[in-house]
């Protein structure tokens, strides 16, 4: 998880085909698209198809010099492109336009490198610490909602809480995880700078 500002120079680098910027762009919006598509598509392959097609169209538009002029609209453009691809996917799952071979080769891959593995492990460790600090009742509540995927209204009823309690519980857990994660990232950056 990287923190980045979308601005004019970023957009220019993206248009110019700068590999590092493309890599960041693909990584950043891939995560958001997966989150978005998971609630709409059942198959991982269908999600992957929509993701790739969305990037293919976005990069094609960027290279053509048309469309995006304001860097702050970049995210909205990716989202609307994704919506269009998704609608097409709904209409005909067999009609996905394959990516051009050329575009496919030029997209940065999503291979998991050693650093990503480390970040993933660190995130998992941070989540474990956050969950370990929760009261047993809240642990069970989260378990039934996220792991067992029980109906949330029924779970809240069983635990004698309302939906707002569940929302606030998730909010606090997320905040704790986020602050731990930021601390870890800062420490890693400091260690890397020494």
């Amino acid at each position: 998880m990287q923190f980045f500002a979308f601005d004019g120079p970023y957009l220019e680098r993206l248009r110019a085909g700068d590999y590092r910027t493309q890599e960041h762009f693909v990584s950043y919006f891939s995560e958001l698209m997966r989150l978005k598509l998971h609630s709409r598509l059942r198959s991982e392959q269908a999600i992957e198809d929509v993701r790739q097609e969305t990037f293919a169209r976005v990069f094609a538009t960027l290279r053509s010099g048309a469309g995006i002029r304001e860097p702050e609209r970049l995210g909205a453009f990716v989202n609307s492109t994704c919506n269009n691809v998704l609608l097409e996917s709904y209409r005909s799952s067999s009609r996905n336009t394959p990516l051009e071979e050329e575009d496919s080769e030029r997209l940065p891959d999503q291979a998991v490198d050693a650093l990503n593995t480390l970040i993933h492990k660190q995130a998992a460790e941070n989540v474990r610490r956050v969950i370990d600090e929760l009261p047993e009742r809240d642990r069970r509540l989260l378990k039934e909602v996220f792991l067992e995927e029980r109906d949330k209204d029924l779970v809240c009823h069983d635990f004698g809480v309302d939906r707002n309690y569940l929302r606030v519980l998730l909010h606090r857990a997320k905040q704790n995880f986020r602050s731990m994660y930021l601390k870890t990232v800062t420490q890693r950056e400091q260690a890397g700078g020494e």
Partner: peptide, 24 residues
């Protein structure tokens, strides 16, 4: 999609949920 702050918030919460499944 256009707000980096909210995007990070969503990604953090999603990562928490994803990892918590394994922990729980």
């Amino acid at each position: 999609f256009g707000c980096p702050e909210c995007a990070i918030d969503v990604r953090m919460a999603a990562a928490f949920i994803e990892h918590s499944k394994k922990t729980l």
